[in-house]
Design a protein around this nucleic acid. Structure first.
Length: 576
DNA sequence: GCCGTTTTCGGCCCGACTGTTTTCAGTCG
């Protein structure tokens, strides 16, 4: 059985959890967590590196010891150090660390005094009133833990970013009414445009901290107050979303915004740099001894550290500090750079607007062109088009284009990739199209090799333009199908075709990491909404957020091109 | 356990809030 990076990362995470409960050196714990995070982000498989005999030392956070442990995992599938610690700390107990209010110390007490190793046994002990008798715990902790177990069971702990936008805006609106002079900014993973967020962080600059705090905990949707302090409070909404509000004075706003935007890994890296320069960074400012050297704006924080300003989307501790120090940060693509949308549907298949209506909406969204890419016959559930219907649609689009001014509708198709890698429509109709999006809509459970080969073969088709939603994942609801994405990306580079970053907020498919790999290999990415309704063109902002996280610049994105250059690039993918 | 303008040892980010405490440890972000 092949070992993938995610497996190695999972073992290191578990190791970190158990070591932490075992009260190991906290920096040793951090070393495991750091390595797990780095390895989870890598695009090259360490299993292959080990087989090839390459050196693992040099991977960020991997030294001699962890390199040996990775080799052990790859060769044996297990980690003996983990099994050793299992003799002291039972497996699965790390789950308890995820409960709010429980950290390593208390988990250890729970296990040693009451033998608690699971949510079930914790719940039972709490119901029997045993927790309140433990040192450091009381009646209140017991009640909170009982609630935490219940809420853990009945709701997922993360939210798609797009789904929390209305809650974020609603809360800020209520706070603004309480203090019209305050400034608000959403921070955290939300500001970094992460695919999912665990909670919302709202930062306020205000002289009325108390007023804001009161308004916050009394807001309409709040069902529980988790903390209510002078400058910092946390609440839980009915849907389980946690919101944190922090109020700071104007001179600290930039430092606080930087701090609460994170990520944690980025902040640690920034503070390490500050320390090396003899400075100290906290959420109130940046200091040399007692002297303030920055903090009112984010620019002042980066400036004091001799860094160019790092866009929030890149603050993941993946080398952005070094890039900023060397003046090597990319100028990230922006929404206004987008000239068109190359993946849309109409009533001909499973969309709910006509081509003319979609074209009008695309133009309204600021685009100069749009490609119609309805489904094909294999996807009967979506009323996919067969050759004859597509021929007619092509004629229809030609006719429509004759009536449009300052806007072009391109002729395309989202063609099903069949099991053997062939395309779902005959060449004579594909040849008439401006572009062909190849997508997998069936047989998600093929073995990894078979799925990868299937896709590579489809890409080799002479009329193939780009791969639609390359992994098929649905965020928080469906795992990607088993496919060797780096291999697909490398193949696209050799073949001379493109990849899609699907901007639908449920998909955001490619991931940021894979976007970054594609960019390194010089592959153009089409950022498309896959719109099925006119309002879906609004999805573009989510795609742009993801593209920025992947470090994509305007030049890396296919549909930032004006129509004439776009046509040339589409033409270029055709093999004779 | 990693790492090096602190360089093979001795550091490793920093502060607010809670609950249980009676001066602070644990947790969280």
């Amino acid at each position: 059985m092949a070992i993938y990076n995610q497996d190695i990362a999972a073992l290191f995470k578990e190791m970190a959890d158990l070591l932490e409960i075992d009260a190991a050196n906290p920096f040793r714990v951090r070393a495991y967590r750091n390595a797990a995070r780095t390895i989870g982000d890598l695009t090259e498989e360490l299993g292959e590196k080990v087989e090839a005999g390459s050196d693992l030392i040099g991977i960020d956070g991997v030294g001699k010891d962890l390199a040996a442990k990775i080799e052990e995992i790859v060769r044996t599938g297990t980690l003996s150090a983990l099994q050793e610690i299992h003799e002291k700390i039972p497996p699965g107990i790390g789950e308890l660390l995820k409960l709010p209010g429980l950290g390593p110390k208390k988990v250890k007490v729970l296990y040693e005094d009451l033998g608690i190793t699971s949510l079930d046994s914790l719940e039972k002990a709490a119901q029997e009133g045993k927790l309140e008798q433990l040192p450091g715990l009381g009646k209140k902790s017991q009640e909170k833990l009982l609630k935490a177990v219940a809420s853990r069971r009945d709701m997922s702990q993360r939210f798609r970013r797009a789904d929390v936008m209305p809650y974020a805006e609603g809360m800020v609106k209520q706070l603004r009414e309480a203090d019209p002079d305050a400034q608000f900014c959403l921070a955290g993973s939300y500001r970094r445009a992460c695919e999912t967020v665990g909670d919302l962080d709202i930062l306020a600059e205000s002289g009325q901290a108390g007023t804001l705090m009161d308004a916050f905990v009394q807001a309409g949707e709040v069902t529980e107050i988790l903390a209510h302090g002078k400058t910092k409070s946390s609440v839980l909404l009915r849907n389980g979303l946690q919101i944190d509000l922090r109020v700071v004075p104007p001179e600290s706003f930039g430092a606080a915004l930087h701090y609460f935007t994170g990520s944690k890994a980025h902040n640690i890296a920034v503070r390490r740099r500050a320390r090396q320069m003899g400075l100290k960074v906290n959420e109130y400012g940046i200091f040399r001894g007692e002297d303030v050297v920055g903090g009112d704006t984010e620019a002042s924080v980066f400036g004091a550290l001799n860094l160019s300003e790092i866009p929030p989307e890149l603050r993941e501790g993946r080398g952005e500090i070094e890039a900023a120090a060397g003046g090597l940060l990319p100028a990230l693509v922006e929404r206004k750079d987008m000239k068109g949308d190359l993946h849309t549907h109409s009533t001909a298949s499973d969309g709910n607007a006509t081509i003319a209506e979609m074209a009008a909406a695309a133009k309204e969204a600021g685009h100069d062109y749009m490609a119609v890419t309805d489904h094909t016959k294999r996807l009967t559930i979506a009323n996919g088009l067969d050759e004859e219907r597509l021929h007619r649609q092509i004629d229809e689009i030609d006719e429509l284009n004759g009536t449009l001014e300052g806007f072009a509708v391109l002729k395309g198709s989202e063609v099903d990739i069949l099991e053997d890698g062939s395309l779902d429509l005959a060449d004579d109709v594909l040849e008439r199209l401006d572009l062909v999006v190849g997508s997998v809509h069936s047989l998600f459970n093929l073995r990894r090799d078979a799925q990868t080969e299937r896709i590579l073969r489809a890409m080799d088709h002479p009329f193939f333009t780009f791969l639609g939603h390359p992994t098929g994942r649905l965020i928080l609801s469906r795992e990607p199908y088993e496919v060797d994405v780096p291999r697909v990306i490398e193949h696209a580079a050799q073949r001379g075709c493109y990849l899609e970053l699907n901007a639908n907020p449920k998909r955001l498919d490619l991931s940021d990491i894979h976007c970054s790999l594609a960019r390194e290999l010089g592959i153009l990415i089409a950022v498309n909404t896959d719109a099925h309704r006119t309002r879906d063109f609004g999805y573009m902002i989510h795609g742009i957020g993801q593209a920025r996280r992947g470090g994509l610049q305007k030049k890396d994105v296919l549909n930032t091109r004006p129509l004439a250059s776009l046509r040339k690039l589409l033409e270029k993918t055709r093999l004779s």
